[in-house]
Amino acid sequence: MPPDSVPTDAAAESVSAAKMARRIRRSALQMVHAARLGHPGGDLSAADILAALYTAVLRIDPRNPRMPDRDRFILSKGHCSAALYSTLAEAGYFPREWLREYMKPLSLLNGHPDRNKVAGVEANTGPLGHGLPIGAGAAKAAKITGASWRTFVLTGDGELQEGSNWEAAMAAAQFGLDNLTVIVDRNRLQQGDETERTVGLEPLAERWRAFGWAAREVDGHDLEVLIRTLRAVPFEPGKPSCVIARTHKGRGVSFMEDRVEWHHRVPTAEELSQALKELGGGDE
């Protein structure tokens, strides 16, 4: 959304966001297949959240990626770089052709995002638990300078086992950072197993509330709900906002959905073809 534009109807915007989400999913799977590396399960669970942000929420200008008053979006789950790069290409930060270079030798598109190489990337992430502290610092900078831009951080759910997130959560509440929003991609699976069978996170919304945040739980694949919710921040003045987006790892591809092995499995040519057929939209 360009700066100063008037928000239109979330229902109407969710239609174009859905198209973008489908293109993100298609392109992320093609990238992972070509690179023989990547994290397709998380790419697919995050696609709708990314599409909602970049079509209807963030105040950004891809032609001016370092505009001082831009909203900051930080992908803390940096391993889902294929989804992020696809989103940034869709948003117009760089040509879609670049996506073919994903993880090739000397490519700008490293397996984890590098802000010094790719326009639109705000933070170099990959090791988990880095995005929220950086986001808290950015939001604090806006408070100190009296600027109106906002900060959004997308974390994984397994990632919340990293203690640094909770250090940042405490500080953000203490500082009253109501210009900071964390979105948790709650797909319930981490690399090896379900989160609740590894080190459980529930009751997750209650935990955020106990840490001083205003938290809401939503369907992370309902674009209209995502857009309305992310536009409604801050949920409470003086408090940072948390959106727990209930998602499915591998969303959109029947044989990947809710399957732990697709955290970082690479689809074969046949699997890719089947996945693209299921996703549809190849003629767009």
Binding site: P68, R72, E122, A123, G129, H130, L132, P133, I134, G135, A136, G137, A138, A139, K140, A141, A142, I144, T145, A147, T151, G163, S164, E167, A168, M170, A171, Q174, F175
Partner: peptide, 26 residues
Amino acid sequence: PERMVNVGIAEQNMVGVGAGLANGGL
């Protein structure tokens, strides 16, 4: 006082917050 950011006893967050403040132009 408005430019003194005390993150409490939390060094990982402290350095991340520093990077975020720099991202915000400080």
